[in-house]
Design a protein around this nucleic acid. Structure first.
Lengths: 113, 113
DNA sequence: ATCCTCTACCTCACACCATGAGGTAGAGGG
DNA sequence: CCCTCTACCTCATGGTGTGAGGTAGAGGAT
């Protein structure tokens, strides 16, 4: 019952950590958790479905590979379409956070007509 | 079908515009719309329910008053509890947006243990 | 008078999507 | 042989915004 803030940012988070290079699912979760200072704890309930959705949309490509020690892993890498999607999501996120700031801080927007 | 980003920020937006002073519901929506540069278009489907919820929680106080020209209006003002809630929500929002930035920009968190 | 439009309030079925719990399977230690 | 950890996956549930609909008063136009 934490909060609803995460809604709509999951694709951005996943694409964001994959920009640096190939990672497997479990590792993506760990990376997000670590970079956010444990504030964003990736539930597997949204992580895997998000990966599948992004793969289906062509934003990610994936391949199975055996792990050094343990079960096989599914490695994901970002595609050109994924990079475009990432850029869009970042733009949208920036615009939204700017708007929230303007509304709550009482600044008037000086954006486009 | 726009996006889900708004989820969890509605209370923050409403409390934010009411910090300056008393406003009635319809006006709150217009203020949010205007300050966000029309990017956040307040649906009445969440605006009124949010006002009712915040009033029930004691974050807002409200009173009916006749409009100059038109239907009666319900004016809302923020309470002491509402100001505390606003501060909490702002803190949470700031922390969350900072985390998202750290994750997507690849910066490591240097936040609190 | 009647109709249309605008303000101003409200509600509800619907859909999206994260939560949290549960489930499979391989590898290594006690 | 059991327990734990990694690593994948799925699904019922629930919070909450979307979009459409609904009431009512005031003012202008026909």
């Amino acid at each position: 019952m934490r909060s609803q803030l995460l809604k709509g940012t999951t694709a951005l988070l996943v694409l964001g950590v994959l920009r640096d290079g190939e990672l497997y699912g479990y590792e993506i979760g760990a990376r997000i958790r670590e970079r956010s200072g444990t504030l964003i704890a990736p539930g597997e309930g949204w992580l895997y479905p998000t990966l599948h959705r992004l793969e289906a949309e062509g934003a990610l490509e994936a391949s199975w590979r055996d792990g050094d020690q343990g079960p096989r892993r599914r490695y994901y890498r970002i595609t050109a379409a994924g990079l475009r999607l990432l850029a869009d999501q970042e733009r949208e996120w920036d615009a939204f956070t700017r708007s929230v700031r303007q509304v709550t801080r009482g600044e008037l927007a000086d954006g486009p007509a």
